[in-house]
Computed example of a mutant assay.
Amino acid sequence: MKKYIVLLRGINVSGKNKIPMVDLRRLLTALKFQKVQTYIQSGNIILEANLNRNDICDTIKIGIKEKFGFDVPVIAKTISEWKKAIANYPFAIENEKIVAFTFLDRTPEINEIEIKNIGEDQFKIDGDLIYVYCSNGFGKSKINNNIFEKKLKVTATTRNLRTTLKLLQIAEDEVL
């Protein structure tokens, strides 16, 4: 069994695509995933599986469609990929509220894009990950999942530093 951190995009946001975490855990357990845990209500999952990443994503996507009736993008990362993402963050981490990681479903065909009027905000595309630094916070930034998806033609979901670190902590905690 290999452990993965799995991210769902766009659930429990503004009353749309509602999935109670207890129901999600039950579904994932019924789909034969092991040691399933969730963190907060925004689609953060830690689980173990014998499947490869693509099969994990497809199984979860199909399961959610059948059980809850809507499509949800799913991205899975190994623990070593998660650690590497954190270790390679290229910008200063002075304030955790302005640091984020945008996880992509695949490496885009291009690795440079222009986003106009972003002020002091910064981002760096690194394979299937984008490092994000929003100096004035995410609420005012023009850097977001939608712009990355449109320009890179990928699925993207972002987690702030606190959530990213917490997911790693949960994943590394052997007391499940």
Rank of each mutant, 00 (worst) to 15 (best):
K61N: 11
T155V: 14
L176T: 14
D126Y: 06
A76F: 02
L7G: 10
K18L: 14
N95Q: 10
K67A: 10
S14Y: 09
L129H: 02
K166I: 06
V132E: 01
T157I: 00
A156Y: 01
I46E: 12
N160C: 07
F103Y: 10
V6A: 04
S141N: 03
G137A: 04
I143N: 10
F138M: 04
N50C: 07
I170L: 14
F33P: 02
E81Q: 15
D23W: 08
E94K: 14
F101G: 02
N111W: 00
I115F: 08
S135W: 15
L8V: 11
A76N: 03
E66C: 10
V99K: 03
E66T: 09
D173A: 08
A100V: 00
D58W: 13
A171L: 06
S80V: 14
T163N: 07
S135T: 15
F101K: 01
F33Q: 05
K151E: 10
V154A: 04
N145D: 03
L167Y: 01
I79E: 04
Q122G: 05
D23L: 10
I113R: 01
K2Y: 10
K142D: 11
A171V: 08
V13C: 05
K151F: 08
L168H: 08
D71K: 09
E81T: 01
P108N: 06
E109D: 11
N95E: 13
L24R: 02
K116C: 11
R25V: 02
M1I: 13
T157S: 09
A49D: 07
I11R: 01
I40F: 12
Q34L: 15
D173H: 12
D173Y: 12
K166M: 08
K18E: 06
A100G: 10
C134I: 01
G139F: 10
N88W: 05
D23P: 06
A100I: 00
K67C: 04
F103W: 05
K32D: 12
G69T: 09
K166Y: 04
I56F: 07
S42I: 01
K65M: 14
K116E: 14
N136P: 08
Q169V: 15
I147W: 01
S141M: 02
P108M: 06
K84W: 15
A87R: 13
T29A: 07
P20T: 09
I11C: 01
S42M: 08
G15S: 02
D128V: 05
E81L: 06
L28N: 09
I86Q: 01
G63N: 00
T163A: 10
I60E: 05
D128Q: 05
F103T: 00
N12M: 03
I75E: 00
A76K: 02
K140H: 12
N136R: 14
I147Q: 08
F138Q: 00
M21P: 04
N160S: 03
I5R: 04
G63A: 02
I125K: 03
Y4C: 12
F33C: 03
A92I: 13
S14T: 13
K150D: 12
R9A: 03
V72T: 14
V13I: 12
V36N: 07
L51T: 12
I170D: 09
K32Y: 12
V22A: 14
L8G: 06
E120R: 08
I40N: 11
I147N: 03
R53W: 02
D55S: 09
I46K: 13
P73G: 03
L167K: 00
N52R: 09
K35L: 13
V74Y: 11
F70E: 06
